[in-house]
């Protein structure tokens, strides 16, 4: 098991090098020269050249890349052209907001999705099944930004139940320890701030999680239907245990194996930054920041974010694979190929 994890972690390194080469090349080929954007329209040729020299942009691209790579291995991803702050700081200032939202969204999507999927499968061809399928279809089809606006209009504008945007009321903001406001609020013992942060996250989490919820519902339904037809479900019923146990234990657990993959992949893509949701709900996360930096040709920041997202994806994949082993005892990880 440990061997397997180490192997998988080591495999991430070549992936990262590949990703860094691609993003490095793309930024230099397709993005405009950052110097005039940074220095403004009145900059002279001399100041521009001086700025390019200072930032190493006049070196051959290969040299630039290796400088970047050696820096990256030491944990130095460069500094932003605009704010002059290290890229890592820029990212980590915004990343907790994105993670917090992604977790809230995937928790909502998983709980509701699995529940709807199970009900749809157990009550196959009933009104519940039809309603679940319709809900799932709406979930995958509805554009997030439009759903976001509808949610704001209804819950915030019409019912005045929930705030329309932001992470927390400024006055309630807890001292930053982890960057996750809900956790920080709990650490302070500040229930008011926790409740406020919770209220703020509900609508964006709903909007962001809707698509994943729909996918999870469909996956759970089909997986559950397959399991319910298995011989071991009949065995479980023949034992005389309650139908709740037959469904909730004997059928659900094997059905969750493929669902776990889907949840993992969905979570990975949510972490990559929810650009639309973050924009609609003015959520200060990494999604909106990425686009700003691409538009401003802020090379180091964009490269840093892309690398980070790649690492996250690799990690989530590994975690999902390891989760199989706990759900499905037939899978045992080892460095040898047994299966």
């Amino acid at each position: 098991m440990l061997k397997y994890v180490i192997k998988r972690v080591l495999m991430v390194i070549p992936v990262m090098i590949g990703v860094s080469i691609i993003v490095f090349a793309l930024m230099r080929v397709f993005s405009p020269d950052p110097a005039p954007i940074v220095l403004g329209q009145h900059a002279t040729i001399e100041t521009i050249e001086a700025w390019r020299d200072a930032n190493g942009l006049n070196d051959p691209v290969v040299t630039q890349y290796f400088k970047y790579l050696t820096g990256a291995f030491k944990g130095d991803l460069g500094t932003s052209y605009y704010t002059k702050t290290p890229v890592t700081e820029e990212i980590f200032a915004r990343f907790p907001a994105t993670i917090e939202l992604a977790i809230a969204a995937i928790v909502f999507a998983s709980i509701v999705g699995i529940l709807l999927g199970v009900v749809a499968a157990v009550k196959k061809n009933s009104i519940f099944d039809a309603a679940g399928s319709l809900f799932a279809l709406v979930g995958v089809s509805i554009p997030i930004f439009w759903l976001g606006i509808l949610l704001i209009m209804f819950f915030s504008g019409y019912l005045h139940l929930l705030p329309s945007g932001g992470r927390i009321d400024v006055l309630l903001k807890p001292a930053e320890v982890t960057g996750f406001y809900m956790i920080d609020a709990l650490l302070e013992g500040n229930w008011e701030a926790f409740g406020n942060a919770l209220q703020h996250i509900i609508l964006p989490a709903l909007a962001l999680g809707m698509y994943s919820m729909a996918i999870i519902t469909r996956m759970t339904r089909s997986s559950m239907l397959e399991t319910l037809g298995q011989d071991y479900i009949r065995t479980a019923r023949a034992k005389g245990i309650s139908e709740g146990k037959v469904i909730g234990k004997h059928a659900l657990r094997p059905s969750l194996i493929p669902v776990t993959t889907v949840i993992g992949l969905q979570f990975g893509s949510l972490l990559g930054g929810a650009l639309l949701t973050e924009s609609v709900f003015s959520w200060p996360g990494i999604g909106k920041f990425t686009v700003d930096c691409i538009l401003k040709s802020d090379f180091p920041v964009v490269q840093g974010i892309v690398l980070l997202v790649a690492v996250i994806f690799a990690t989530i994949n590994l975690v999902a694979d390891l989760a199989y082993a706990t759900l499905d005892p037939r899978i045992k990880y080892s460095s040898k190929k047994e299966r």
Binding site: Q230, D231, Y232, R234, T235, A236, R237, A238, K239, G240, I241, S242, E243, K249, H250, R253, P254, I257, L327, D328, P329, R330
Partner: peptide, 29 residues
């Protein structure tokens, strides 16, 4: 009733099936 029937199944009358390979749940000990 369903509940009374459950008391009979596996208790008074029990059953073994044709397919031992698929009649046990693969994810539980």
């Amino acid at each position: 009733s369903k509940r009374e029937m459950r008391d009979v199944r596996g208790n008074k009358i029990s059953m073994i099936f044709q397919e031992p390979m698929t009649s046990l749940n693969p994810v539980f000990t």
